[in-house]
Design a protein around this nucleic acid. Structure first.
Length: 813
RNA sequence: GCCGGGGUGGCGGAAUUGGUAGACGCGCCGGAUUCAAAAUCCGGUUCCUUUGCGGGAGUGAGAGUUCGAUUCUCUCCCUCGGCACCA
């Protein structure tokens, strides 16, 4: 008997697929298309288990859909720009491009060794000028349409390395290399007006049934639409400040105002107040990310300025507070300590008055009451509820011209400038006379010089390359300077899915073929991308649509968010030393084993705990499968058609098992995406077939049907071994190109079913009854059971619940 | 802190619409095979109790709804992901 040698079997199958271009696809209007995509990887050089899991998931779906007769696109490429290449450049003294291209070649080799059904002809890399030129082209178009603007924004500045740091490079407020205290610095940067699309991005979520609710909820909360009033407060000696509030009903409870440290009012007040200026400096050293802002100690300083309450005319002090965000709303808030927890905490700390303006009987000095209620201590507005007060105030302020209805979003415009080298150059030229000018379309792409040397001083090499930045103004042709910032790498990952449809098209960003393939039918990637990447890509898609480049509204019809791969309960990482290299496992057990384990160990959404013993088990299963099928083949049975009219009860049972397994595996893959239970069902079928021993014509026909169905169903998971078994079973062509097995409903009809009998919800007996038995008959059989009688005896039967074909519950007291 | 997940045997997990808790696999235990071991095959395996039949408890903790809750509601604990410059 042939032995199972994974390395031979896998090489053989991979060569077949390559020679026959099995997974290269073309537009074909006769076939239903299916676009299956996993988020493309950053080319770090080493494939890790997260990748294996991610691409095996899309792989199984892609191969399954192909067997359903669809024209399946399953592409791969690289998200090639990014910070790690710059770090590697400094460390290894190589250019980021060289390092990146070498990594991509390595990873492609590893992908091929895993046998993934990718259409390699469509491979793309975002660092390729043929790719990013269209991103620059789009940016220029958006610039002309006013969807791009420049404004000041804060960055992390390392004063020793004289460089901008990414958030991840700031550790406990210090630069990761220099250890210097990082400060907030404000510099001009480019923004995309994603907020123009906020409403559509929000509303469309209600019509995306293929997305998990959790992701939709996160995006909804991230966009954070809220309705409130913008109200102007007079501030003598400054002018006026506008605040946004969703709770105008608490306006009479305002006892102070708070502005962000970067607010113009704060800056003016600090000009002749050394104490306040010192406080602002302190604030500039605090981290500006949201998590830090929310957890840090709330601190403030009075500015000495007073605001006039627009309804009472009272003077209330204006404070600077470290927790007010300049980037949200107007950078200033009214504080109502009686009915807002943060304001309350702040008021207690700085001994500011706390007033009750919403009816209630708690101690307002001790706890803020944030629920809606009836207004009190609010002059004419007393007795109104939230809606009434909101409406009257809106009306009043509008009439006075000092307030207006405002829809506010938590979502901020997308800052796309990065002060880094290894990214797509922003196609802008700065002219002293004409200002910021987009690079003319005919001059695109602005190519990133790849042959660079990194020194240790940090900062982008572009800033030291006159050959790159010295240019002329496209408007007045005088000498001008090119932008040396590059794009956020989320830009590239926001449209790559569409470019896979036409990766070599050089007459435009997207060809007509994009509308054949896009939207992606199934998108798969880590949950960590639930908000940023997926929101930016949705935004880009709508922008592309409005440019007439695609004709759909959303890029991803169905979304599957996979969990992380853990080892010993922690995320695999080099620093923890708990990594498992896929390559070693492939060498040892073969790609099929690695693929099988990664699909069997957990359902896709959950985190997956890596287990060496589990891998061993997967390998053992494949060996068992191989031997069982080979044993069946070795008997050289003449397979005759199954005579369904004449089946023994054992044959009926096996037939039931085969078809029930097909039904389960099909729905687990197609609908639930629970690949682990699909595999469990196939293991059960394997066990049933292994135990079965019947050399009659019907017996052989059933075994043949069973093994063949199993080989087909396992093939998306473990395609190499299945191709070998397929051939050994004398089947024509490729298992990858065959049809998925069909369920025969007649095999699923059963005349007897097992039911459980409970007394007061506790299991007391099991009964076998005819599938057609009516309720009273079932009830009678159930009550006749000895062990049921034991618990019913001497008690009154209150009622009997019968769930057909499942259970009987006798309620007694 | 805010938003979104997760918590079930020794371990990974299953239970699809409120209806048998623990499928499948790992590990472990016993047996077969072997000079012996590995590999393989067969059987057992939630805990407590019982010779056995059976009984009791049990899905992070606590409450609630229900004939019946791993599943629904509330409060709490632990843990993971995201928080706008990691990708």
């Amino acid at each position: 008997m042939k032995l199972y040698n994974p390395q031979d079997v896998e090489q053989h199958a991979q060569k077949l697929w390559q020679d026959r271009d099995t997974f290269t696809v073309k537009q074909d209007s006769d076939k239903e298309k299916y676009y299956c995509l996993s988020m493309f990887p950053y080319p770090s050089g080493q494939l890790h288990m997260g990748h294996v899991r991610n691409y095996t998931l899309s792989e199984v779906i892609a191969r399954f859909q192909k067997m359903q007769g669809k024209n399946v696109l399953h592409p791969i490429g690289y998200d090639a720009f990014g910070l790690p290449a710059e770090n590697a450049a400094i460390k290894h003294k190589t250019a980021p491009a060289k390092w990146t291209y070498a990594n991509m070649a390595d990873m492609s080799e590893q992908f091929k060794r895993l046998g993934f059904a990718f259409d390699w002809s469509r491979q793309l890399a975002t660092c390729d000028p043929d790719y990013y030129r269209w991103e620059q082209w789009l940016f220029v178009r958006l610039f002309k349409q006013g969807l791009v603007y420049r404004k000041d924004a804060t960055v992390n500045w390392d004063p020793v390395d004289q460089t901008v740091l990414a958030n991840e490079q700031v550790i406990d407020g210090k630069g990761w290399r220099s250890g210097a205290e990082v400060i907030r610095k404000t510099i001009p940067q480019w923004f995309l007006k994603i907020t123009d699309y906020a409403d559509e991005l929000l509303a469309a979520l209600d019509d995306m049934p293929g997305w998990p609710d959790s992701v939709k909820t996160m995006q909804k909360n991230w966009i954070g639409k809220s309705k409130g009033l913008e109200i102007d407060f007079e501030v003598p000696e400054f002018g006026s400040i506008s605040i946004f509030t969703t709770r105008p009903d608490t306006l009479f409870g305002v006892s102070y105002m708070a502005v962000a440290p970067e607010h113009p009012l704060a800056l003016q007040a600090a000009a002749n107040n050394a104490d306040l200026a010192e406080f602002l400096t302190q604030c500039s050293k605090e981290q500006s990310n949201e998590a830090a802002m929310a957890t840090m100690e709330k601190k403030g300083k009075p500015t000495g300025l007073m605001a006039i309450h627009p309804l009472t005319g009272d003077k209330v002090p204006v404070w600077v507070a470290n927790f007010v965000l300049m980037s949200y709303g107007t950078g200033a808030v009214m504080a109502v300590p009686g009915h807002d927890e943060r304001d309350h905490e702040f008021a207690l700390k700085y001994d500011l008055p706390i007033k009750r303006v919403i009816a209630g009987d708690g101690d307002i000095q001790a706890t803020a009451e944030t629920d809606y209620g009836i207004l009190v201590n609010s002059a004419d507005y007393d007795g109104l509820n939230f809606e009434q007060a909101f409406e009257r105030m809106q009306h009043y302020f509008q009439q006075q011209g000092i307030g207006r209805l405002q829809i506010n979003y938590r979502l901020r415009d997308w800052g796309v400038s990065r002060q880094r080298y290894w990214g797509c150059p922003i196609p802008i030229i700065y002219c002293d006379a004409c200002g910021a000018q987009p690079v003319p379309e005919s001059d695109l792409p602005v190519v990133l010089p790849e042959d660079v040397v990194f020194d240790d001083t940090g900062g982008s090499p572009l800033k030291k390359m006159p050959a790159f930045y010295e240019t002329t103004c496209p408007q007045c042709h005088k000498s001008a300077k090119r932008e040396t910032d590059t794009f956020d790498t989320f830009m590239e990952s926001s449209w790559y899915y569409a470019r896979y449809a036409c990766p070599d098209y050089d007459e435009g960003m997207l060809s007509d073929e994009a509308n054949y393939w896009v939207p992606v039918d199934q998108y798969i990637g880590g949950v960590e991308h639930a908000i940023l990447h997926l929101l930016y890509a949705r935004f880009f898609h709508k922008v592309l649509r409005d440019q007439g480049l695609v004709n759909s509204d959303e890029p991803f019809t169905r979304l599957l968010t996979q969990g992380m791969v853990l080892k010993d309960g922690a995320k695999m990482s080099k620093s923890k030393g708990n990594t498992v290299a896929p390559q070693e496992l492939i060498d040892r057990y073969g790609a099929d084993t690695v693929r099988l384990f990664s699909m069997f160990a957990a359902p896709p959404e959950q985190s997956l705990e890596w287990s060496d013993e589990g891998v061993e088990g997967a390998s053992r299963y494949l060996n068992r499968l191989w031997h069982q099928v080979q044993e069946f083949i070795a008997k050289k049975h003449a397979v005759k058609p199954l005579n369904t009219e004449n089946l023994s009860s054992e044959q009926q049972q096996l037939r039931y098992k085969i078809h029930q397994s097909i039904a389960k595996v099909t729905s687990d893959i197609a609908e639930r995406h629970h690949f682990n239970t699909a595999i469990a069902a196939m293991m059960e079928l394997t066990n049933a077939l292994s135990k079965y021993d019947d050399n009659s014509d019907n017996g052989v026909a059933l075994m043949h049907e069973g093994w063949l169905s199993l080989v087909k169903m396992l093939s998306p998971f473990v395609p190499h071994i299945c191709q070998a078994l397929w051939e050994d079973m004398q089947q024509p062509g490729l298992v990858a190109e065959t049809d998925w097995p069909q369920v025969d409903e007649t095999a699923l009809v059963q005349d007897e079913v097992e039911m459980v009998v409970q007394v007061n919800g506790k299991l007391r007996a099991r009964i076998r009854v005819s599938a057609e038995a009516n309720q009273s008959a079932v009830e009678k059989i159930a009550l006749a059971e000895d062990n049921v009688q034991r618990f019913v005896d001497g008690k009154t039967i209150r009622k009997v619940i019968v769930v057909p074909k499942k259970l009987v519950n006798v309620v007694v007291s």
